[in-house]
């Protein structure tokens, strides 16, 4: 079966930032996410470091990514298809299989590696 490809990762997809500005997905930069979180209220950007990448035993075709998230270094695990792009701080779009990402989305990616720090979002803690 064909994988379900969220079309927001297709090259050329129009993304609305929290500032109202529109950008193509391939033109996004780290600052766009940081600024958007700042003005959105209630959301904040976390730094999520990739600490392990494995192929899933339970769900063939998926990869299991282990992250340590935020200042508390909480451990979070997610299963994703290898073509799923993540935005790495200072580097841009990255996936476990840049070849598949290019095939399916047309989006140019770096190779996601252990040690990469990805942009993730979480709820802002009340003061």
């Amino acid at each position: 079966p064909a994988p379900s490809n969220p079309s927001h990762f297709m090259k050329g997809a129009i993304i609305q930032l929290a500032t109202g500005e529109l950008k193509r997905v391939e033109d996004l930069q780290t600052q766009d996410f940081v600024r958007s979180a700042e003005v959105s209220g209630g959301l904040k950007i976390d730094s999520s470091m990739v600490v392990d990448i494995r192929t899933s035993q339970q769900r063939p075709g998926l990869v299991v990514l282990h992250f340590t998230v935020g200042e508390q270094q909480s451990k979070v695990t997610i299963d994703v298809p290898p073509e799923h792009p993540f935005f790495v701080f200072g580097q841009g779009w990255s996936s476990c299989s840049p070849e598949r990402t290019a095939q399916l989305y047309g989006l140019a990616c770096h190779h996601l590696q252990v040690g990469d720090v990805c942009v993730s979002i979480t709820l802002q803690q009340p003061p």
Binding site: I14, V25, S74, I78, C118, I121
Partner: peptide
């Protein structure tokens, strides 16, 4: 042309709080 919100592109990773 569809327009997607910025927050749909990055994962929501909620750390599990333990206090």
């Amino acid at each position: 042309v569809p327009v997607f919100p910025w927050h749909s592109l990055v994962p929501f990773l909620a750390p599990t709080q333990s206090d």
